[in-house]
Amino acid sequence: MLVLLNQPSQRNQLAPFISGTNGHVVMGGVLAGLQCGHVYADHLHAPKSALIWAKNEMFYLIGRSDNEQFNRLVRQVLVQELLPEALSAGEDMLNLEVYPEPGSDWSSVLHHMFNGRLREGLRIPFQFNLAKYGQWLERSSSSLFMPPGYELQVIDRAVMVDDKIGIIEHEILKFWHSLEDFIQYGAGTCTVYEGQVVGTCISVFVSGIHHETGINTYDPIHRGKGLATAMASAYVQFVLERNCVPHWTTEDFRHDSIAIAGKLGFEQGTAYPVYYMPIQELLDCE
């Protein structure tokens, strides 16, 4: 059976597997126990392969790909435990990335594990460039004012209390174990319109000084007005004031997200594959 690694001390054994991925923020946050997720490995001590689920974000297969017993049990754990939990939490898509150790290749394993049903897309990572962000601020500071009726706020306890519907709390707890953890380690901004939160930009995962960005304008009626850019810019400033580093990753078809990242001084890196499949479709195959 796969071993569930509950303690950060146990999960820290997996740190070398992600050290070549710029300390991967999402996996790092889950391994540290800050953000919600589950970690399974082939062995409690000196694991060679692992499955990491970052809730509401991504599944990851890391390490050796030729671990046949591990590979067989991964599908079982996914189908019997993790995917039903993800479905009940509102996720409808299995999204999967792989990080093999040198010399390993997950391609044939994935084909067999999911009966050739996985689709393949592309994710685009960005690296923050402080100088370019400063240049953009100088050019664009006058255009960051919110449209009439909208207010940009930094998320703190008082703002959460004023959010009577609980939109901010709901967004934070999709990723974080508690609001207190977020207040202590995370950062965020929001847009308020007529007393209601209509958009948020928050640290969805934090690993050390690295913050992965999650941004959302909830109702299409509020989009196309520059709200996301303003929230993201204020969020980046807040992260920098904490002497931390903002990160941005998105899918290749999210053109608005790519454009905002580019405005704010994030430099586009090389796209890499992400595998996906509707959860219900996978469960129906069983």
Rank of each mutant, 00 (worst) to 15 (best):
Q153M: 13
S104H: 09
R72D: 02
L83M: 12
P273K: 15
Q76C: 09
E169D: 03
A50G: 10
M277R: 13
F70R: 06
V74F: 10
L264Y: 01
C244W: 00
F145E: 11
A158D: 12
E194K: 14
H111E: 14
E97A: 01
V206R: 11
P220V: 11
I258L: 14
K132L: 07
V198F: 00
L118S: 09
Q35R: 02
D66F: 00
G226Q: 05
L87Y: 11
V74R: 14
N129Q: 13
H45N: 12
V74M: 10
D284K: 11
V197Q: 00
L61G: 00
V98G: 00
L96C: 02
A261K: 14
D181Y: 08
A261Q: 06
R75I: 04
T189P: 01
C201D: 04
S108T: 13
M27Q: 01
Y60F: 13
G116H: 03
N6R: 15
S203W: 00
H255N: 04
R11W: 07
L51F: 07
I215E: 06
L5A: 02
R72S: 02
E241G: 01
Q80T: 11
V30T: 04
L94T: 03
L283S: 05
R139G: 03
P102L: 07
L240M: 13
L173P: 00
Y193K: 11
T21N: 06
S49K: 11
W248I: 12
A89N: 07
G186H: 08
S207L: 05
G23A: 14
K55I: 09
G265F: 15
N12H: 11
D92V: 14
G214E: 00
L227S: 00
F266V: 02
C201E: 07
N6G: 04
G23W: 08
P8M: 10
T21Q: 15
D92Q: 14
R123H: 07
G195H: 15
Y99S: 13
H177E: 15
S65D: 05
L2C: 02
E267L: 13
Y275F: 12
A50N: 08
L44R: 14
F70K: 06
E85P: 09
I62S: 01
V74H: 14
G103Y: 10
L96F: 03
I165V: 14
D162V: 05
Q135N: 12
L83Q: 02
R223N: 08
T229F: 03
G226W: 10
L173M: 05
S19L: 08
F128D: 03
Y133H: 07
G33Y: 14
S203D: 02
K164H: 06
N22G: 10
L82W: 01
E251G: 03
L51V: 08
W53P: 04
S143F: 13
Y60V: 09
G214C: 01
E85S: 09
T270N: 09
V30Q: 01
L83N: 05
S207D: 05
K48Y: 06
Y235W: 10
P84D: 09
V245K: 04
V192D: 00
E97M: 12
V3Y: 10
Y150E: 01
I62Q: 03
T21F: 11
V198A: 04
L227Y: 03
V192R: 00
Y185R: 14
G149Y: 15
P102N: 11
F266S: 03
I172N: 11
M277G: 02
H247Y: 15
R75S: 01
M160C: 06
P278W: 05
